[in-house]
Every structure is written in structure tokens, then in C-alpha cells.
Computed example of a mutant assay.
Amino acid sequence: MPIYAYKCDACGHAKDVLQKMSDAPLTDCPACGAPKFNKQLTAPGFQLKGTGWYATDFKGGGAAAVPAAAGTAADAVATPASAAGGDTAAPAATASAAGCAASCACH
């Protein structure tokens, strides 16, 4: 079951509540009783443990996880922009876009 963060707009009381996704949201503040108790938007938190993909593919820096052809294409795209004195963020965006087809949804 997910944990939802709630905060009262009237008194500022905040509380984390363990609820089913199908449960109706809470509306009444447990501290002041006002009907101003609203769900807050929060980032999910999780941790991967064990001998999964992190320990085998990315823990040592990820060099072994990148295929040689993909690294070469990224270097080829990044070299002209960096040699011309361009922004260092632009080659990364160009390199990621180089792997996409012209009809993809990201362009």
C-alpha cells in the first residue's frame, strides 16, 4: 500500500497516511477538524537491494554496460560541437537524439 502525504491548509498540520489506492482521500484534519486536509504531491522513494542490475551493471561506473557502438556514436557527435567551443550540454542532447528515429515522439 502506498503512503500519502497530507497537509491541512487551515492549521498546517502534516501527516503521512498508509492507504489503499482505492480508498477515498481524507478531507478532515485530525488536528483541527477543518475540511482542508489535502494530499500533497511528493516524489516516490525506493531502494534497490541485492545482486540485481545495479550491482552487476552500474556499480563500477557503468563502462561495461555501454555497448562499444553506442559510445563511438556519442563521441562522434560530441567531438564537433566541443571542438567549435559549443555548449557542453548540447552534445549530450544531440547524442541521445542520434539514437532516435525521425518519427519518434521526442522530436
Rank of each mutant, 00 (worst) to 15 (best):
D28M: 06
A31F: 07
P25L: 04
A24Y: 11
P25F: 05
G71V: 07
D87I: 02
C8E: 09
C104W: 04
H107Q: 14
F37I: 06
A10E: 13
P35V: 04
T94S: 15
Y6T: 07
K36Y: 12
S96H: 05
L18P: 15
D75R: 09
A10W: 12
A83N: 01
H13L: 06
G61N: 05
A55W: 06
G71W: 02
A65E: 03
G45D: 15
A93Y: 11
A5C: 07
A10Y: 10
G60E: 14
A83F: 00
P30E: 01
A81D: 02
L26Q: 06
T88Y: 04
G45P: 11
K15D: 12
A63V: 02
G50C: 12
V66E: 07
G60H: 01
D57H: 10
A68R: 00
L26T: 00
A68G: 00
P25H: 02
A55S: 08
H107N: 12
F37E: 01
T94P: 13
T56L: 08
Y6W: 06
G61V: 03
A93I: 11
A83V: 04
T72E: 15
Y6M: 04
K39P: 10
S96E: 11
K15M: 12
P25W: 09
S82W: 02
V17Y: 03
G50Q: 09
G86Y: 01
